[in-house]
Amino acid sequence: MASEFAKPLSAFGFLTALEDPQHGFFGGYLVLSDLGRPLEFHCSTPVLPNEAQKILYGPTLRPYVLGEIIGQTLVSKGQLAVQAVITDLDEILTLALFRDEPVLCLDSKETTSADQTPVVSAPTLAMGDHRLFGSSTCTWQAEQLQAALAPLCSHVDLSEPFQRIREAIREAQRISQHPAEQQHDHSAAA
């Protein structure tokens, strides 16, 4: 869909997912202006792999579900072209195989555990206090991306939009699961 429109001056996609043991993975994709204001948002219904998929995909299950299934679906729903897609889950980097936009992962304590160290050969770039890295197969130019991300980083802490997405996913789930509750809240306030 994004291809139907010209590229806006500066828009950046933020993609992440929430994992719920009962319902599976909920994805959320937020497009921000370089001032950090929300332009567009998409979230998914929960995706719960079945037992066969868990067995057969093994360790590749999460990259498959998060990057290939949820990530690809959400980003393709976006109507605004973005300069880059940033995620805080390194499994989502598989999205880079299916999209033209650069896909970067925010290197944080949450994503970088001992067994999930970023691939050494992956390109990295530093933006203020944050470090971003791509997949080992990505082809983006660090200098160009750094220049493109600079205006965003002067207005937004790169780890912060993911909090917004998680809150929005929870809200969307709350409303869709308990529409009566919302109605009740409204009538109580009125």
């Binding site: 139907e4 429109f5 010209a6 806006p8 202006s33 998914s44 219904t45 109507q79 605004l80």
Partner: peptide
Amino acid sequence: VKTTGYVFPEGAACLVPV
């Protein structure tokens, strides 16, 4: 995967036909 999504007013203003 089913999705729900919105383009907010400021985003809609950025949508320019190709």
